[in-house]
Amino acid sequence: MAVSRSMTSWLYISPLMLVLVPFFVLPILVVLVASVFETDGFGGLIPTFTLANYGTVLTSGLTYNLYFETVKFTILTWFFTLLLGFFVAYFLVFHVRNPLLAIGLFLICTVPFWTSNIIRMISWIPLLGKEGLINSALLHLGLIREPLEFLLYSGFAVVVAYVHQLTIFMIVPIFNSMARIDKRVVEAAIDAGASRFDIMRLIIVPLSKSGIALGSIFVASIVMGDFFVTKVMSGGGSASVVGAFYEDISVLQYPGAAASAIILTVILLVMVSLILRSVDIRKEITQ
C-alpha cells in the first residue's frame, strides 16, 4: 500500500522532474563544469580541472565593484518595495472597510503584473528624461532652472524601474498573510491598551512574516538575477553581476563567466534557504 502510494505520487510528479532535471539541474551542472575548465581564449573549453577561474574572479577588484553595485540595488529595491508593499497591503486589509472595494483595489494593483516588464520599464523614459514630463513640469513651475540630470540613466532610474516592477511581488503575499489575521486579535490588543505602533510591532508584523519572507525572496532573487534594467536605465553607468556575465559570454569568456555565475547562484540559494529556514513557505501556502 505504502509503496504503491509513493509510486503514484512519483508518477504525478514525474512530468515536473522531466522539466526540472534537464532544464534546471543539468544546465547549472554544465555551468559548474565550465567554471572549473580552462579556456583556449576563443570560446573553446579545455577539460582540465582548475580553480583558477574562481581565483581570477575572486581577486578582481571589478568583481567586488559589481557585487557592491548589485547588492546596493538589491537592498534599495528591497527596502522600497517592502515599505510600499507593506503599507499598501496594510491599507487594503485594515483600512478599506468595504471588502469588495478592497478586492477591487487589490486587483488594480495586480493588473500591470500581467503586462510586459520591458514596456513598463521603458515607459519611464518619457517621464524621467531630460525633456520629460517631470523636468518640464518642474521647469514650468520655476522650481528648477536646469533639467535634473539624475532622473534618467542613473542609479535613481534603476531603482525606480525595479520598484515599479517588483512592488507587486511584495503586495500579493503580504496582503494574503494579512488577510488571514483574525481582526478580533487586533481588537483584543486594542482592548489591552496597545497603541497603534504596538499593534503594528507586536501583531501585524509578526503575523505577516511569511508574506514578507515570500515577497523578499522574489524581489531579491529577481534583482540579483537581472541585468536588463540596470543596463538600460542606468544608461551604461552601472553594471551588474549578471550584466558582466552576459558581456563575458558574448566575448566567449565562458569559464570566468561561469565561475562568477556559480558564485552568484550559490549566494542566492544560501540567501533563499536562510529565509526559508525561518518560515515554512510550503506549509504557509498549503494551509
Binding site: I28, S221, D226, I249, T265
Partner: peptide, 9 residues
C-alpha cells in the same frame, strides 16, 4: 530563484 540568464546560457 536561479538567475534566468545563467540558466538560459
Amino acid at each position: 530563484v536561479a538567475p534566468g540568464l545563467v540558466l538560459g546560457i
